[in-house]
Design a protein around this nucleic acid. Structure first.
Lengths: 193, 193
DNA sequence: CGAAAATTTGACATGACTCAACTGGAGTGG
DNA sequence: CCACTCCAGTTGAGTCATGTCAAATTTTCG
């Protein structure tokens, strides 16, 4: 039975709960299995959930005015993914989230999450830390875009996220770095020397 | 007397407190006056405070490996400023914060802030919202850097932040947009036609 | 195996950078 | 009140990184 899987042990690894507490927490999450190519969220959708990634690989991307895709985030084991901008402001999604590989997710709604915040302060501070971390990661990315060449950013990417590199296509990486696949190809050729 | 200024009325405009509560809150903030050119934080410093800007204008910037400055944030009336990456992780500052104009700030230490969190849940959620907003702003900026030309980003900047444009030099804006002053000058010439 | 998808390559275009020189204004001091 | 300096902004010429478009090649996978 799916409901017997102790999701809280996966998700909140550092936190301590009693068995009864774990039952409550686990009941707030819903297992979602997606296949490669599936979209779990489309631009324009109402966003009322976020997703913990048990396994698999996903990416969230934005399609700009010229129809080009820009990857904002990849997600693998143990990461979270959603359109947070829309999730926070209860506005419509500007991002699309796609499974790059088959994946198993634990979905939680805003409502259930707020329930957990109320009952478990440690969960609220877990999410706060997560948000603070994401903020820091975003700031680093802004600085990287302002100060580094495409080549430097690519090298940083593959050294920082070797696990992600294994799971995604080069054109996904290009769309994360903000360059064309052709440019990425030339950078890779340069580096292989 | 400085301590009689009701800081909480400025800072937490939407929130309701009793007079006694306001006294407690106000006591956690310290008034700091800075002159144009002053640095309130330098890269390498320990960061244990954040600042509410009552008036004036500041910017936070990072100096990269080639010695170039990249402005991460401007701050004017009613905004907050700090090196949040360092503040959150209690690590050393990577940002420098400079007063662009004389300014009056309300400073709060991490310790005092955590006190307030404990006593006033509405303050904790005020800061959560603030963080969520900043996250959203950063995401927009990442997407702008990935998908827009320097000219488009400049136009966005001056329409989104007309108040800031008034207070800062063009070379500050250039360092925010990630372009040289020469390029910005050419963009402005183009637009003036 | 064969078709579709992903990547690479080539030729050329372009936006932004670099460096150096110049302009115009805002003080400042003789 | 002029000469001087400093600072911000502008302009010009040449360069470079990355983009565009088209075609060739390689990889993936049904």
């Amino acid at each position: 039975m799916q409901t017997d899987i102790p999701k809280s042990k996966e998700i909140f690894k550092g936190l301590v709960f009693t068995n009864d507490e774990r039952k409550i927490i686990d009941s707030k999450f819903q297992i979602v299995k997606v296949k490669k190519g599936d979209l779990i969220l489309k631009a324009g959708d109402v966003v009322d959930s976020q997703y913990y990634i048990l396994n698999g690989c996903l990416r969230s991307y934005h399609i700009d005015a010229h129809g080009k895709e820009h990857t904002i985030q990849f997600g693998i084991n143990n990461w979270w993914i959603s359109d947070y901008t829309a999730f926070f402001s209860t506005s419509k999604a500007v991002m699309t989230i796609e499974a790059i590989k088959n994946a198993t997710l634990y979905k939680i709604s805003r409502e259930n999450l707020e329930d957990l915040y109320g009952q478990f302060p440690t969960i609220e501070s877990y999410y706060r830390k997560k948000l603070e971390n994401s903020f820091t990661v975003y700031q680093k990315r802004i600085l990287a875009e302002l100060s580094q060449s495409a080549k430097e950013r690519y090298v940083d990417f593959i050294t920082t996220y070797p696990e992600i590199e294994k799971s995604v296509k080069n054109y996904h990486i290009a769309s994360y770095l903000g360059i064309t696949t052709e440019s990425l190809s030339r950078i890779r050729k340069e580096l292989s020397k």
